[in-house]
């Protein structure tokens, strides 16, 4: 759990992403402090994945700037230094289906130039509980196991920052519980930004919430702050994502105040 005095690990400064005439992300600003589990909340198509791609350096913002661990992922050498300390699970957990989890982890360990490869692999295999499928082709694994292999890949370098794009997507309730438990454990030492549109997930794992809708920031605060007055999280989510302009405007105003305070 972070404190407000902890240094900022992830910072987005008025980032936008434009594809032709379509604006996927509109001037998004937020900060995630060290040791925080931040939920990146929003309905499908809100711009969560695009923002995460910009944070990892896969995409460059059309305008604005990003800083993760003090590095600008838009600068080649800086992105490489950042990538050594960053674990990333992209949306839908893409993996090489012709490889076994062991081969995949060995491959990424070599690409990351990790020192003690066997030790690193043993650690993430234990953490993600993939021992029983370690030598089976990934293409033959269930969605749940594939997602766990993706998590193992993200954890391989024991990174300081984890960016997880819908880490529980497609998992059964038991697997969801295990992944959330793992995220809570990892959140004791690492800074984690995870995207989700599931409110229970926010309550279960997150310290803070950054909510986006149609590419714009509509809320940035703690889970308790999101649950305003007598409203449930679900009611607040609907109000922020699909509610009246007044509701959205007031939330944005409170968010702006918070961003300035940061």
């Amino acid at each position: 759990m972070s404190t407000s005095s902890a240094p900022v690990t992830i910072r987005a400064n008025a980032i936008s992403k434009v594809y032709g005439d379509f604006v996927a992300v509109h001037g998004l600003s937020f900060a995630v402090r060290k040791g925080t589990v931040a939920a990146f909340l929003g309905p499908n198509g809100a711009g969560k994945s695009t923002t995460m791609k910009m944070l990892t350096g896969y995409l460059a913002p059309s305008s604005g700037s990003v800083e993760v661990l003090g590095k600008d992922p838009g600068v080649a050498e800086s992105r490489i230094e950042l990538a050594r300390r960053l674990g990333y699970l992209p949306e839908n957990g893409p993996l090489y289906l012709d490889m076994t989890p062991r081969e995949l982890l060995e491959f990424f360990a070599q690409v990351r130039k990790l020192g003690e490869i066997d030790k690193a692999i043993d650690r993430v295999v234990q953490q993600c509980a993939i021992q029983e499928v370690l030598h089976k082709p990934i293409g033959k694994l269930s969605k749940g196991f594939r997602q766990r292999v993706g998590m193992a890949q993200a954890l391989l370098s024991d990174p300081d920052v984890l960016i997880l794009d819908e880490p529980t997507s497609g998992l059964d309730p038991l697997q969801i519980r295990e992944v959330r438990k793992l995220i809570r454990e990892l959140g004791q030492q690492k800074t984690i930004l995870l995207s989700t549109h599931i409110l229970q997930e926010v309550e279960a794992v997150a310290d803070t919430v950054i909510m986006v809708h149609e590419g714009r920031l509509v809320f940035d605060g703690t889970v308790a702050e999101l649950r305003e007055g007598d409203q449930t999280l679900e009611q607040r989510f609907y109000a922020l994502a699909g509610g009246s302009q007044e509701t959205t405007a007031s939330a944005t105003a409170s968010t702006t105040k918070k961003a300035k305070a940061n």
Binding site: G57, I80, A83, L86, Y88, P90, P94, V111
Partner: peptide, 9 residues
């Protein structure tokens, strides 16, 4: 996306 977010040029 996975490969290009590794510490590689």
């Amino acid at each position: 996306e996975l490969l290009l977010t590794m510490p590689v040029r």
